[in-house]
Amino acid sequence: MIAVSTRTLRRRGNTVIALVILVILLFPLYWMLNIALQPGESLASTHWLPTSPGWSNFERALESQGGSLVTSLVVALGAVVVCLAMAAPAAYGLAQLGLKGGRSLVFGTLITQMVPGIVIANALYSAYVDLHLVNSLAGLILADASLGLPFSIVLLRAFMVSIPKEVVEAAMVDGASRFTAFVRIVLPISRNSLITAGLFTFLFAWSDFMFALTLNTTDAVKPITLSMYEYIGAHVSDWGAVMATAVVSAVPAAILLIVAQKYVAAGITGGSVK
């Protein structure tokens, strides 16, 4: 039938357009990979295609950066836990509990976004010294949680606003405390938003550089952003290795993103609670 073939044609057309868009938008990343796969070439004479791909750059990258990847993973996951532990109740409070001064709290949340990272990091340093949090995983986790907290509160609140109050009230009538109701009803319903907020927090923490740089004076805690920065600074001429490191550093986050992608699509904004 003509109608079917038009639709199929349009679908194929869309796929082609999508591919073109991908090529254009992702070209720089392709270039990164390209350079990484051409060990020994000077940057000004890189070929368009890695005709004889070499993996030595990646080997070197993993060798020197492997430990930092693990550190980043631990820090990012920790930051997600800390952040959500604070953001979820706060978002619920703002969304559902009709707190007076709720508006100024939102304003306060927005203010936090305005302060440049350097300003925060430098101020934190002196406090951290007194609290013995410098060069510690815990200290970095606490700091990185701040990267996702405002965003998570805004996101979760936007979702929780749409949860009907009756649902929670019903549980409380049955004898549960508000907190228990929150944990057993609100949280599961908000699963998608929680995952989305957690995902973004993970990504913010993963790519944090400012805190990693400022709050660590030794090599004890070295996330991937920091070790890459040092690597770039130390191997200025070795672009192949630098790019390989960059690719390697993006992979864990990319995997996480693809896996959690369907939750993200579903959980972004407040929708009706089915």
Binding site: L19, L22, L26, S207, I232, A246, A250
Partner: peptide, 15 residues
């Protein structure tokens, strides 16, 4: 495509 298009965001800004 949607998932892959997120990649530019994952690469640290420095790089």
């Amino acid at each position: 495509a949607r998932a892959v298009l997120l990649l530019p965001w994952l690469v640290p800004m420095v790089v």
